[in-house]
Nucleic acid binder design. Structure first.
Lengths: 239, 239
DNA sequence: AAGTGGTCTAGACCACGGC
DNA sequence: CCGTGGTCTAGACCACTTC
């Protein structure tokens, strides 16, 4: 039997093929997906490989498997607590997103941040401070920290142009997958108030995030300040 | 080769065995777990079966697998986004939880709250305002709204004694299952500041929750004010 | 070079669901 | 009853990390 050498794994190809049929709408929620044996026959792989493909789709919540019955397209996911870049959030409201880079350069006096990124406490970090604007109104101030060693190629120009999320994905092949956030409230200091064009001492939401790659490696530390008249955080929590 | 008939699957046994070694502390975060081949040899199963066990443990976040290197115990899980009653939260910190009922009675001038609970806008509501104390220090002010018709039997005395969560569960057979929350920041007004024993205008986290039963019926609306020096909200969000 | 996880085969038997 | 997913075997080669 010919083997798939140095290419995309067979189970991923099968997975994508099924996924395309679901996302294109040819298969609707509740519809039966090809069975393991059917997929194995069609793609000329063994049962275990076809199984693996369906197993991954189930893990992602695209299908549900029922023993004795079959594999079925799952109802569309509800995206609560979704991790979105600023650009994506603004896109959802049909607002043009811009960023003004206030600062972009190396620091090394931040041992606590380094620790959160799993780096030695004397590691050099790249610090990026940005004012986030939607339709030219200031929405937030965000400060990002990354390992300077790993992301030395990052330039200010790249940041002005596009989203840091997509930059990491395209230029560094890093897929951000989840974030742990700590949220509290604070008051605007003079500089913050001026930048965000709000009154001094206005209550702000403060968010501190550690963003992890799909391999559970901490990649990015972000602290953000969000005036509460322009942001509402929506969370669904489960018992 | 003898096969395991009508019992617990072999991969689950292996999974539990490894899990026990981790939870008992014999294996600490960062330690290497037995390799696939080692587990296969020890438990006299094939490689695929040992793989399955480690794969499940990885999915549950107990271990991390690194190609070429091995399988390692992951840092301990933190329970994120969990819906907990105030009593449960305090219990987790080993603090005695108390509540002082500031107000408890019917209202009907709250059409917006009624709407969030899926009731007609003129529905009568039961309004309960409580000061939450942990080890006699004030931690939060919470105001709950319930349908007056459905929960007419609720008395002030019951509330003083125990958790509203368990009251709903035991006396009304209502299992709370998830909540949608809206979070922003606000400043303490004079009354709030006095009750929480904080300075006026101190930034507070404000949370507005709609709590749903396990049958997805809105049961409870809660607004809360949390001084940010005593509360940190921890959230995990996914891409 | 030795050991690890990742992919894969070509079968097998079982438990379960629906007809 | 037949088809489904769930478990399992006894191997194989590959890509990768560590030494």
């Amino acid at each position: 039997m010919p083997r798939n050498r140095n290419g995309i794994p067979a189970y991923q190809k099968i997975q994508s093929a099924v996924q395309r049929r679901i996302e294109s709408g040819r298969l609707k929620p509740g519809d039966a997906v090809d069975s393991e044996r059917e997929l194995a026959r069609l793609h000329r792989v063994s049962l275990m490989t076809a199984r693996h493909a369906l197993s991954m789709l189930e893990r992602e919540g695209m299908v549900q498997r029922r023993r004795g019955a079959g594999t079925f397209v799952a109802p569309p996911k509800i995206h609560f607590n979704k991790l979105m870049s600023f650009t994506e959030q603004m896109g959802g409201r049909n607002l043009a997103a811009h960023s003004k880079v206030l600062h972009c350069g190396p620091t090394d006096g931040e041992p606590e941040v380094a620790a959160k990124l799993g780096l030695p406490s004397d590691a050099q970090l790249l610090k990026i401070e940005r004012l986030r604007l939607g339709a030219d109104d200031p929405f937030a101030i965000e400060t990002c920290y990354l390992s300077a060693a790993e992301f030395s190629g990052l330039t200010r120009a790249q940041l002005e142009r596009g989203s840091l999320f997509s930059l990491l994905q395209q230029d560094y092949a890093i897929q951000l997958s989840y974030a742990d956030e700590e949220i509290d409230a604070t008051a605007a200091d003079a500089r913050t108030a001026q930048l965000l064009r709000v009154a001094r001492d206005l209550p702000l939401l403060r968010m501190r995030q550690v963003l992890y790659s799909s391999k559970a490696k901490p990649v990015l530390y972000v602290t953000g300040l969000y005036p509460s008249d322009r942001h509402k955080l929506l969370i669904r929590r489960y018992r």
